[in-house]
Design a protein around this nucleic acid. Structure first.
Length: 736
DNA sequence: ATGTTTATTATTTTT
DNA sequence: TAATAAACAT
């Protein structure tokens, strides 16, 4: 019902939803109901205006966001939501290329290389181009190529832009790199965009097909799009010009992924008639938090004014505190969390700790473990990055696409088959000489005596056996679905047995394979060939598995980058120190410094009710012994008006953390809550009394961090592990 | 061919 | 610290 769709919206939101003709730019501050607007806009288009969902394309930045959007639309539109095109730019492009890529010479069964694969190809390319990987780190060269592709510069385009010796080196590698991808019928992430752009540019019929289909185009997180993505969007919107982009320049934090803020300016220039809607009402955070965040972001020079206001109450003051080191900092967080949980009935899941670099999660994790607080670490070890998962995927890729040399070399000797580096090198060289793929070269081994002579006889038999196995799998792939194929492969390759019997943590790793098998189940219904292709595409594009235990009441540990788009009633931002938040790598560049500030802004605006800003006086860097240099408080703290900041809990003195003299160490109030606990309070054999568990005997008492972990065998309640500082423990004197 | 030791080097990471 | 890669030994 149309009334419902518009009813729950404020005037500017309503404007954003109903402005359906022509180009629209929605500037949406944090917590302003951005997702809500997008979802309602689509529902409005379908329900009220009568646009077929088939003709709407919504682009998001993560698969997670796409899934969420689809789910919310399902609630509003029911099964009609299924016809909607909704996904990331990469997924959209992958689908277009799968359908029409042949027009630009892309095999229908092309593979998508992930970062690791791309790395191997780069190294190969550097070797061929005779570039010393020690002088030119492969990662940096790849980065340069990736940046070029994001600006839509292919090899020829880049050649024209070469302006330094370094560029020239990059160019040489770029040429080889691209040739290797083509030979393997493979694309990298950047190619998905670049090749789609080229396809739409050079093939009017294909362009017409997609332009004609998409009557409405919506792009979320527009501030984080790169040039290639923007240009593709322009192509798709070329016919109807109904393009709606939503973004917030102040939350642009991915310039290092080639996001280009100038896209917003370009949009206003390219679509001079575009309507601009500002969503400035924040429905998320208290006045205190909004005001502080506004002050912080207002310090940036490169900025469009975008005032934000909230109708919420003033709320609690922001708490800023200094701990002695990262361990105490983490303890402070966890103790306060525990206090919130007990005194104010705040669930753990309402709280998040955010940090600049992943390494900071460790201290927090340890503190959680120490205090028995459940936590959920976001994005730690990614499922599809695990060796065993990648191995199986490589086998499947090889079956789907025999030209994929990277995958072949990955699994050729996994499990070990006695095919060493030397044999592999020989094989590759011979294949190159013959101008065939490595797998085809294997096929020729038995008949070609000359070629065979190049391979040591010991390896030859193993190679032939491997080839026979792959051929068998390829035949089986014609009739077996993905799951059955996977099962066959695991047996024939001896992978299962090897994993379980020969490797460390074999059991655990096998379970990961089982999980992978589980995700493949969804692709069964697509039938043999289709299912395999779709599965591989999904694996390449959906690198995050957020099937994490969402039902558990646990606090969230997350990087500031990953936190974008989320919200929590209580947020702890840790590591507010010069060199960490602003990160040392951005200190010398004003533009990067502004991005660091935006990152902090993103973090602050995740908080609904409570915001804690922590820092450590000394911080150890990657285990380098003990002390760590004294830290200077982050310059960002200076931007927060002191009347919005409370003194640290438990501290008698007023906090001068937000003072204009942050270098004045004496002015900084230490967080007394994080004070070190007493000396070893108990020893094994001591008799203690606990308020709840009654009497017991100390089994052990060990230092854990700044605290003491006491294991006690209680008479009635069994063995418990307790923290001395928290548990209501009392020593019972043995004898008079 | 493969296992072991030492050297090196560290942001962020939606795809 | 810890992860990875190159060098080295078996």
């Amino acid at each position: 019902m149309p009334v419902d769709i518009l009813d729950a919206l404020n005037p500017s939101q309503r404007q954003a939803v109903t402005a359906i003709e022509g180009p629209v730019l929605i500037v949406a501050g944090p917590g302003s109901g951005k997702t809500r607007v997008i979802v309602h806009r689509i529902a409005y288009l379908v329900d009220t205006v009568g646009v077929s969902p088939h003709r709407i394309c919504a682009v998001t930045f993560t698969n997670r966001a796409a899934r969420e959007m689809r789910a919310r639309l399902q609630a509003l539109l029911g099964s009609r939501a299924e016809q909607l095109t909704c996904g990331t730019f990469h997924a959209l492009c992958a689908a277009i290329l799968r359908r029409d890529g042949e027009a630009i010479g892309l095999a229908h069964n092309y593979v998508i290389y992930d970062e690791e694969d791309q790395g191997t190809v780069i190294k190969q390319a550097m070797e061929e181009a005779k570039v010393d990987p020690r002088r030119f780190p492969p990662h940096a060269v790849h980065e340069a190529i990736s940046a070029a592709k994001a600006q839509l510069l292919d090899v020829e385009g880049f050649r024209l832009r070469v302006g330094s010796y370094y560029d020239e080196v990059v160019l040489r590698v770029y040429e080889r790199y691209q040739a290797l991808l083509v030979a393997g019928q493979a694309v990298d992430f950047d190619d998905l965009l670049l090749k789609t752009f080229v396809l739409l540019r050079d093939h009017a019929d294909v362009l017409e097909k997609y332009q004609g289909r998409y009557l409405h185009l919506l792009i979320d997180e527009f501030q984080d799009t790169n040039v290639a993505q923007y240009q593709i969007a322009r192509q798709l919107a070329g016919k109807y010009r109904n393009i709606c982009v939503v973004g917030d320049p102040d939350q642009s934090i991915y310039s290092w992924r080639h996001a280009d803020l100038r896209n917003i300016l370009s949009f206003q220039k390219d679509y001079a008639d575009c309507r601009v809607v500002h969503l400035g009402e924040n429905y998320r955070s208290t006045q205190t938090i909004v005001a502080a965040a506004q002050k912080v972001i207002a310090t940036n020079r490169q900025r469009l004014e975008n005032p934000l206001h909230t109708s919420k109450g003033q709320g609690a003051p922001i708490v800023a505190a200094e701990a002695y080191n990262e361990e105490e900092e983490a303890n402070w967080v966890v103790r306060e969390l525990d206090r919130l949980h007990r005194q104010e009935r705040v669930p753990y899941s309402a709280c998040a700790a955010m940090y600049r670099v992943n390494a900071q999660s460790r201290a927090l994790e340890e503190a959680c473990l120490r205090y028995g607080i459940p936590y959920h670490l976001v994005g730690a070890l990614r499922f599809y990055h695990r060796k065993e998962v990648k191995d199986v995927v490589a086998y499947l890729r090889l079956v789907a696409n025999p030209a994929d040399e990277v995958s072949l070399l990955r699994v050729l000797n996994v499990p070990p088959r006695g095919i060493g580096q030397k044999t592999q090198d020989q094989l590759v060289r011979w294949a190159r000489g013959q101008g065939v793929s490595a797998l085809d070269a294997l096929g020729r081994l038995s008949s070609d005596e000359q070629g065979a002579a190049l391979i040591p006889s010991s390896g030859r038999a193993a190679l032939l056996r491997f080839h026979a196995m792959v051929q068998e799998l390829r035949q089986a792939a014609e009739r077996l679905d993905v799951v059955a194929l996977m099962d066959l492969l695991l047996e024939r390759a001896g992978y299962r047995q090897w994993l379980l019997e020969e490797t460390e943590d074999g059991q655990e790793r096998w379970e990961n394979i089982t999980e992978l098998r589980g995700t493949a189940e969804d692709f069964r219904r697509l039938g043999p060939q289709e299912g395999l292709a779709a599965f591989l595409e999904g694996v390449a594009l959906v690198s995050d598995q957020d099937n994490a235990e969402a039902d558990r009441d646990a606090m969230t540990l997350i990087t500031l980058h990953q936190a974008k788009g989320l919200e929590f009633p209580a947020v702890f931002i840790v590591g507010l120190e010069e060199g960490l938040l602003p990160h040392s790598r951005s200190l010398d560049d004003p533009a990067q410094l502004e991005e660091e500030r935006r990152l902090f802004y993103v973090g602050m605006t995740r908080a609904k009710e409570r915001l804690y800003l922590l820092r450590a006086f000394r911080r150890r860097f990657r285990g380098s012994g003990m002390p760590g240099e004294p830290n200077t408080p982050s310059r960002f703290l200076r931007d927060i008006p002191s009347n919005l900041i409370a003194m640290p809990l438990g501290s008698g003195a007023p906090s001068l953390i937000a003072s204009r003299r942050p270098r004045d160490e004496a002015a900084v109030t230490p967080a007394t809550q994080a004070a070190p606990p007493p000396r070893p309070p108990l020893k094994t054999g001591d008799r203690v009394r606990h308020a709840k568990f009654g009497e017991g005997i100390v089994v052990s008492c060990t230092r854990s961090g700044g605290d003491h972990e006491v294991t006690v065998a209680f008479q009635g309640a069994g063995v418990k592990r307790l923290l001395y500082s928290l548990a209501p423990l009392e020593k019972v004197e043995m004898h008079p």
